[in-house]
Amino acid sequence: MDKDSFSDYAIVIKNLVKSFSGRIVLDGLNLKIPVGKITVIMGGSGGGKSVLLRNMIGLYQPDQGEIYVDGENIVGVGEKVMNDVRRKFGMLFQGAALFNSLTVGENVALPLRELTDLSDEIIKIIVKVKLELVGLTGFEHFMPYQISGGMKKRVALARAIALDPKIVFYDEPGAGLDPITASMIDQLILDLSRKLRITSVVVSHEMKSAFRIADQIIMLHKGKVLEIGTSDQIKNSKNPYVQQFINGEPEGVIPLKQTSEAYLKGLLET
């Protein structure tokens, strides 16, 4: 791959294969995540979204393939190199994953204290700036149990961007939130991407949210990329799987009951 391509793409994945106990979850996946844009990875449950995410952040090692982050292939690198690569990432987990014994401010400060030699005074200022970015000025001294679920997500986001990452991964950012709070989180993702030119990778199965924020949508199905396009391209896709997914219909080309043969075989042969 030539150098130009790497400067345009934060992440490039080539022929990624991952299986668990012989069951193939990612089946020769190829995709590119453009720098400074929002890419939403969509697909049904079990379609490989989470496994893909975990491969991208180095939590899983693929069976085959290459994953270039910022031009560097992270497959097979040691823990030390991976830790350096991870410093370029921010990660917003599905549950906010705040430390309940620490204040909001201490939670945001944590990566700065752990990974930099910055003084307390400077860290305190950074925490204030990050909390302002997520609309939580004045909440430093609150404990996680004193704030709402949506606020916790925003604190987690402030923490995810504490170290000024180039790439932020969001795992189902709207999960468990009411529609208004979820759209607020979407707006934050948009703001951070547009204003700070952060590359955003969002794993989601919520179509509304994806259409609202995505520069690029990647639809996964059975461990392969089914379709890549802008929101409009995906909306107007002729692919019956994509249409079934968008419209949330139980029956279509993706059968609701797809294991009947295996089920019967399993039942009758035991």
């Binding site: 930099t116 910055l118 005074e121 400077i122 200022i125 950074i126 700036v129 504490a162």
Partner: peptide, 11 residues
Amino acid sequence: IDSSGLATFVE
């Protein structure tokens, strides 16, 4: 400049 640079100017 990153956040620590900004914070340095603020201080």
